[in-house]
């Protein structure tokens, strides 16, 4: 539970995937018109998709360049009269904004690292080791995927309060690190690695830990990219868990989403600044996604659901 509980349950449960070379193969298949309507119609629909998906973000970024009173000028206007970077400069030199970005960025990296460590080790254990009650434990772990966030959000809050974790970095990073979806996803990948590779190493006397670090980890890049980015995004975008657990006003642990939400409710009318800040807050995750989109998109395949 925790920082990413709602995200695990929305994105997570739908992301039971195993990357296969087949997906990449399929992408190369030549295009063939099988739908209704002609080429023109298909391009019109494509243009509509681009517009619907990207327009709100483009409008947000462009409005950040408007003058203070222009965002809410009547009538509505898409482009600014004069393009001016003031809002971006001003928000990017606000120390609280910078601190919030820093906390989100550092926290997200830490969270992704912890998530990868904990979940890949568990995935390896479930994929390769034999131990008592393995199947029972595995089913129990899988079951945690079906717990709706709200059922444990409230008592998780009570638990971390009792543990004295409120207003610490740990409360943001630790509770959500272990996630059944990620264990499942990495395990699927490890099951696909032929056992012959490690048998030689076993005969040479390497122990299981050594096989994990020397053979499995170097091969894990495709799944690690997907799990790492999913975790990074979950932390970067988290809002509800942080507002519950970081309760001191103007805390040094305030993250970017909290900053934006507070900004919005306290300085309502400064839309230009707000949109500039939102644009800057959305940029890292979009860039991250664009860099690794190949892995992420081919990662979205639901193994076994046929």
């Amino acid at each position: 539970m925790a920082a990413n509980a709602p995200i695990v349950l929305t994105d997570g449960t739908r992301e039971l995937t195993s990357p296969t070379p087949a997906a990449a193969h399929r992408r190369r298949r030549s295009a063939r018109a099988t739908g209704p309507g002609g080429t023109v119609l298909r391009y019109v629909f494509s243009a509509l998709i681009f517009l619907a998906a990207l327009f709100p973000l483009a409008w947000m970024a462009i409005s950040g360049f408007k003058a203070r009173n222009e965002v809410v000028s009547s009538p509505f206007q898409f482009f600014p009269d004069v393009w001016q970077p003031q809002n971006y400069v001003e928000i990017a030199s606000d120390p609280q904004f910078l601190r919030a970005v820093g906390v989100s960025f550092g926290g997200a990296l830490l969270f992704a690292a912890l998530s990868l460590t904990v979940n890949s080790m568990a995935a390896y254990a479930f994929a390769r080791l034999e131990f008592a009650f393995k199947r029972t434990i595995w089913v129990a772990v899988l079951m945690t995927m079906f717990i709706p966030g709200m059922a444990i959000l409230l008592t998780s809050y009570i638990v971390v309060t009792r543990m004295g974790m409120l207003n610490t970095l740990a409360v943001l990073v630790v509770p959500g690190a272990a996630a059944a979806v990620h264990i499942f996803f990495i395990r699927q990948f490890y099951l696909g690695i032929p056992t012959s590779i490690e048998e030689a190493a076993l005969i040479d006397g390497a122990d299981r830990w050594r096989i994990f670090t020397a053979i499995f980890l170097p091969m894990s890049k495709p799944v690690f990219v997907v799990v790492g980015i999913t975790s990074f995004l979950a932390f970067w975008n988290a809002y509800v868990w942080p507002i519950m657990t970081i309760t001191e006003p103007d805390s040094a642990l305030t993250q970017i989403q909290q900053y934006l939400a507070t900004f919005r409710s306290e300085r309502r009318i400064e839309y230009g600044l707000l949109l500039a800040g939102s644009t800057l807050a959305a940029t890292p995750v979009i860039v991250l996604f664009l860099i690794f989109q190949r892995y992420i998109i081919s990662g979205i395949r639901i193994s076994g659901i046929k």
């Binding site: 994105d11 998906a53 709100p56 973000l57 947000m60 995004l233 970067w236 975008n237 809002y239 989403q257 934006l260 939400a261 939102s278 807050a281 959305a282 995750v285 979009i286 991250l288 996604f289």
Partner: peptide
């Protein structure tokens, strides 16, 4: 849009 936060 999937990578954009609910706040934004």
């Amino acid at each position: 849009p999937t990578v954009i936060s609910g706040v934004i």
